[in-house]
Write a protein that binds this DNA or RNA. Structure first.
Length: 472
RNA sequence: UGGGGCGUGGCCAAGCGGUAAGGCACGAGACUUUGACUCUCGCACUCGCAGGUUCGACCCCUGCCGCCCCAGCCA
């Protein structure tokens, strides 16, 4: 680490501090998704931070699946998540699954019970909720809070052995029911849940909660900096409590940053999942989704996505980034190297009145204006073509330089045409245009540019080739 | 009315006591057979508000105001 290197954000400042103070002599981060859906652009931000920080400090980043809630998870998601990470160009050091550590976590839980800082609670979830108090009122201790270590150990073992029905008991941390931080009011560590797990099958009927599993897993993996989003800030005291009570020597340091929000974009996995399940979209990779799979399908490159995330920055203020920035990054990336194609989104029929009968011209169209090596394609032009309705106005305002009654425009790569007649349908809508074509104005020919309006017109836009190569 | 965070231009975001970076968006102009791209110029006398400390504050202190998160046997 060079001394002159300046921290690029507050996370790096913390890490620099830790390295300078000797708290750590290396950096190891982790990206910890729950395999319950596809990764979206918001996850990509966290991913870039996790992997990016490790890379910057010459450290390592692990990929870990926090698969502790089998009711929502599936193996297809773990496979897809790995694909997405690789697509972005990141390589994880170690690959872990929380489920591979269930036995270890169980042992640690027993250790907590022996220390007298965890107990089995028989209250119903309703009773627990009621006794937890409110934001402004402290909670009250569970009547089962002072069970003996032996009884707790026995009960917890029997929970694991499947002697009790789902939801009948939980293992809780014994902290402080009067804590102003509600999360510290004896949080649940384990719950009984009979559900087939995509990796451990039916081996377990008790599953650890995030607040217990996550910090321990970080500690077990030797993570130095556990980076996560702002909503976990209030979990940090509990995170530290768990790691400390479990006796880890070098506790990881949790640092929180603001998650990504984008204008006009639904980023909640809960809603995205609903869209998929209810068929609102065709799938997780439906082009309308904010998932990496969808963006890839739309032609966004990993470089563009990472460039965007880099420009967004890392901070703690809640924010909503303008979608225009993402689009700018994608255009900038694609603009210089993507082959061009023309399309008409809202077609308006144009008939050329003086086009030679039966003549079909072959128009050579460059695939990229700045890259002749990308070659060209051939479009076929006849007496009928389609332009976008946006490129015609019957009563053009001053700054409109495209087609209008009596005006000329050049069809990109082809001829100059003049609007001679506007045909309306029964509703008075413009239905078709009759234009004359200047057969001497073929692209490449000398000189003439459309006069009067001053500019050659862009008549082609996106969907369908305006110079069609097949009858529409 | 509890606790934890955050407030710099339309949207992000630098700034760490010495007199407001950068990007996106937007506006004006140049160029253009993609009105794209590119290029040039413009865009916070001011940093949520009000006091205070200081020669000097966005950066320090005090008090307000606003927004976000937390009462899952989700992560």
């Amino acid at each position: 680490m060079s001394e002159e290197r300046r921290a690029a954000n507050f996370i790096e400042e913390f890490i620099d501090e830790d390295l300078a103070s000797g708290r750590y002599d290396h950096v190891r981060t982790r990206f910890p998704p729950e395999p319950n859906g596809f990764l979206h652009i918001g996850h990509a931000k966290a991913l870039c931070i996790d992997f990016g920080i490790a890379e910057k400090y010459g450290g390592k980043c692990n990929l870990r699946f926090d698969d502790t809630n089998p009711t929502k998870e599936d193996a297809v998601f773990v496979e897809n998540i790995q694909n997405d990470i690789e697509w972005l160009g990141f390589s994880w050091d170690e690959l872990h699954f929380a489920s591979d550590f269930f036995e270890k976590l169980y042992e640690i839980a027993c250790g907590l019970i022996r220390k007298g800082v965890a107990y089995v609670d028989d209250q119903t979830s309703e009773e627990m909720r009621k006794n937890r108090g409110t934001l402004t009122r402290p909670g009250v201790n569970s009547p089962y809070r002072d069970r003996s270590v032996e009884e707790n150990l026995d009960l917890f073992r029997r929970m694991r052995d499947g002697e009790f029905p789902d939801g009948s008991r939980v293992l809780r941390a014994k902290i402080d029911m009067a804590s102003p931080n509600v999360l510290m009011r004896d949080p649940t560590l384990y719950r009984i849940l009979r559900c087939h797990h995509h990796r451990t099958g039916d081996n377990w009927c008790i599953y650890p909660m995030y607040d217990f599993q996550h910090p321990l897993q970080d500690a077990i993996e030797g993570i130095t900096h556990s980076l996560c989003s702002l909503e976990y800030e209030i979990h940090r005291p509990l995170y530290d409590w768990v790691v400390r009570e479990a006796g880890f020597e070098h506790p990881p340091r949790q640092i929180e940053f603001a998650r990504l929000n984008l204008t006009r974009t639904v980023m909640s996995k809960r809603h995205l999942r609903r869209f998929v399940e209810e068929g609102v979209v065709a799938g997780w990779d439906d082009p309308r989704m904010p998932t990496l799979a969808a963006m890839r399908r739309r032609g966004y490159s990993a470089a563009a996505v990472k460039d965007f995330l880099g420009r967004v920055g890392v901070a703690k203020a809640d924010s909503t980034v303008d979608l225009a920035l993402l689009e700018h990054c994608v255009r900038e990336d694609l603009g210089g190297r993507a082959p061009r194609a023309m399309a008409v989104l809202r077609p308006l029929k144009v008939t050329l009145s003086n086009w030679p009968e039966g003549f079909v011209d072959e128009i050579a169209m460059e695939n990229h204006p700045d890259h002749p090596e990308m070659g060209e394609r051939t479009l076929h032009m006849g007496n009928v073509l389609y332009i976008d309705r946006e490129d015609f106005m019957e009563e053009p305002p001053k700054k409109f330089f495209r087609l209008a009654p009596g005006r000329e425009v050049r069809l990109k790569g082809a001829y100059i045409i003049r609007c001679e007649e506007v045909i309306h349908d029964e509703n008075g809508e413009v239905a078709e245009l009759v234009c004359s074509v200047d057969m001497d104005s073929r692209s490449g020919s000398e000189g003439r540019q459309p006069q009067g309006q001053g500019h050659a017109a862009l008549v082609e836009r996106a969907g369908r080739p305006p110079l069609r190569d097949a009858p529409l």
